[in-house]
Design a binder for these strands. Structure first.
Lengths: 176, 176
DNA sequence: TACCGTTGTTCGGGTTAGCGAACGCGGACG
DNA sequence: CGTCCGCGTTCGCTAACCCGAACAACGGTA
């Protein structure tokens, strides 16, 4: 589990095992056994590897991934405030992924953005703010309207297509 | 550093050292030395403690916190796509916090939501989708319009106040 | 083909993490 | 006061993490 994460991050950084071991200050034998899944590394070792890889260490202890989920505007678990005219809808909670990039995306009317899959285990969260958007995995896109929420795994080809002018949305990308 | 985090979480859960060691399946001597800051624990040990404490493990390796930052609609680092009429704006990236709750919030015109500070180190991210919103720390609120992005530490009293009808926004709450 | 540089994987060994048991301490109870 | 129970800390000891070095495997080059 950790083994795969370390190897994935190392290859994503384009480093050899020897080079990463040198930069992190650990013996390459240690790193080799670690990537082979033998034993549990100490926190110090894993920390050194995380620093050398430029990833915040919790990224090296990943976990499984969900699939596609849509919450329509008005659906979802609403949390109302008694004290004020305020309502919140919980869309996603409790992931312990590490990197989380937050975007605001704008797509011209009729424009289509194709994206090949990102790193395995990445998850995308999308909330449409205005316009209409068709998004999701390339083989199963979903039509969304303002307030709609969509989440899906980003490790397969996917797309964004605006169905109305001035379409924009909030996009959270989680990289495991 | 880790020592303090473990002790803090253990006391926050109201557990004794002996009880936590029993639940996590580690020797209490190990836990005692760990909280004393002696040596580096292995990942497996820390993981077991995280499970027993009900925290996602990366919470045991904390880090500092930012303050308030506003990115106006149209500002920010834009990432354009050459292939399609598509533009994305990166708002926040690379946090290594653990729990991340995603909300869509709706606030009635003129309504004010007050919130006392949450757990130390929590961070809130806010993107206004429609309407006008005054939000932020109670002593330094900021007026936001659709597309504006605001982030601030949530461990101090803060507020949300709608300045127009049909105001809603996307809210990401990070709990360290 | 032979040589060389690099990559990643296996070997002994020193050191340390983790365990179980024993210890000192403080409060509750008879 | 004496005993008991639970708290957290220290004491040997075994196991394993980590290291350095030697080892195969591969590709480029003369």
């Amino acid at each position: 589990m950790i083994a795969a994460a370390v190897r994935r991050e190392r290859e994503r950084a384009g480093l050899t095992l020897t080079e990463l071991a040198r930069r992190a200050g650990v013996a390459k034998s240690t790193l080799s056994q670690l990537e082979a899944g033998t034993g549990n590394p100490s926190v110090e070792t894993l920390w050194a590897l995380g620093v050398a890889l430029g990833v915040p260490f919790s990224q090296l202890v990943t976990s499984p991934a969900p699939r596609v989920q849509v919450i329509r505007a008005g659906d979802g678990q609403r949390v109302r405030s008694e004290a004020a005219d305020f309502a919140g809808t919980l869309l996603a909670a409790g992931s312990h992924h590490a990197r989380r990039d937050l975007y605001v995306i704008e797509i011209g009317d009729g424009a289509v953005r194709q994206a090949q899959g990102h790193t395995p285990g990445s998850v995308e969260h999308l909330v449409v703010a205005a316009g209409r958007l068709r998004a999701g995995p390339a083989d199963a896109p979903v039509d969304l309207e303002p307030g709609d929420y969509l989440t899906f795994t980003g490790d397969v080809p996917h797309r964004y297509e605006a169905l109305a002018p001035d379409t924009w949305a909030v996009l959270i990308m989680e990289h495991p």
